[in-house]
Amino acid sequence: MNSRREIIPITYRLAPALLLAGALLLASAYLASAGPLAQTADEGRAIFEQKCQACHTIGGGRLVGPDLQSVTTRRERAWLLSFIGTPDRMLAQGDPIATQLLAENNNVPMPNLGLTQSEVESLLAYLENPAGAGQATTQPQAPTQVLPPGNYARGWKLFTGEVALVGGGPPCMGCHNVGGIGRYGGGSLGPDLTQVYSRLGEPGLTSALANFPFPTMAAVFTGKALDPQEQADLLVFFAQVDAQGQAMPPAVFDRYFWFWGLTGMALLFAGMVIFWPRQRLSISEALRRKR
């Protein structure tokens, strides 16, 4: 066909441009990855305050995770480097210390924070000597904050989205399930939160609601933090849902989604049958049959 002939030469003619684009892409990738960052305890402190503080203190007791005071003497440096860098992989490989830590911390796994090797080194430099790195704020922020009294009903509405979050964040139900939330459950992108209150403990959950120390949520809620009243309402909501204990993993609801998806498709195809007879024959077929 004519049109086929027309198109192929364009593709060929643009091949040099495409190759050039690819070369530029690789070059820029190489240049950008070339310069390593300085490994300093100050950088480590900044990382700690930004990414670790929601779950850990240094000498302030345990929150969601253990107190990190003198952690650099408790554990091997090589182990710390790989665990802080890729805790998910260490757990998957069945590392004995990682497995033990998971059990000790209510089965809340440490998330992969996406730190580079040099960032982990800086963090370790800070953890070795927290007092030496400028003004170290070793006290956790969240538990010291006093929340107003919470309201269960309002917590429910915040969870489903019936009451929108003040900061503009998405409602919890978009990604999370809790027992008894709706006929077909809540979301399944994030973990089930039915038992989150007992899993994280009240201080841990309070801190989590204030800081979102989980990589997905941290990015989504940047600049959209929950206000203290919302945190309090959700805390009460989670406490009560936990007490009711109607755990229903989102996987239970999977079959409903398969069922309605496939049924809907069948209905759409059924609708197409109505229009089918008019499409039956091609012109040449009609001519052939007429003979």
């Binding site: 019936e162 939330i181 077909y184 998806g261 496939l262 049924t263 809907g264």
Partner: peptide, 26 residues
Amino acid sequence: LWWNSVPIRLYLLEFSGLALGFWSLA
């Protein structure tokens, strides 16, 4: 988000999307 704030509306939207997705895949 307003539409999805009532669970039944959210489910309706998700089921419709799935049906259209399966239809499209077929």
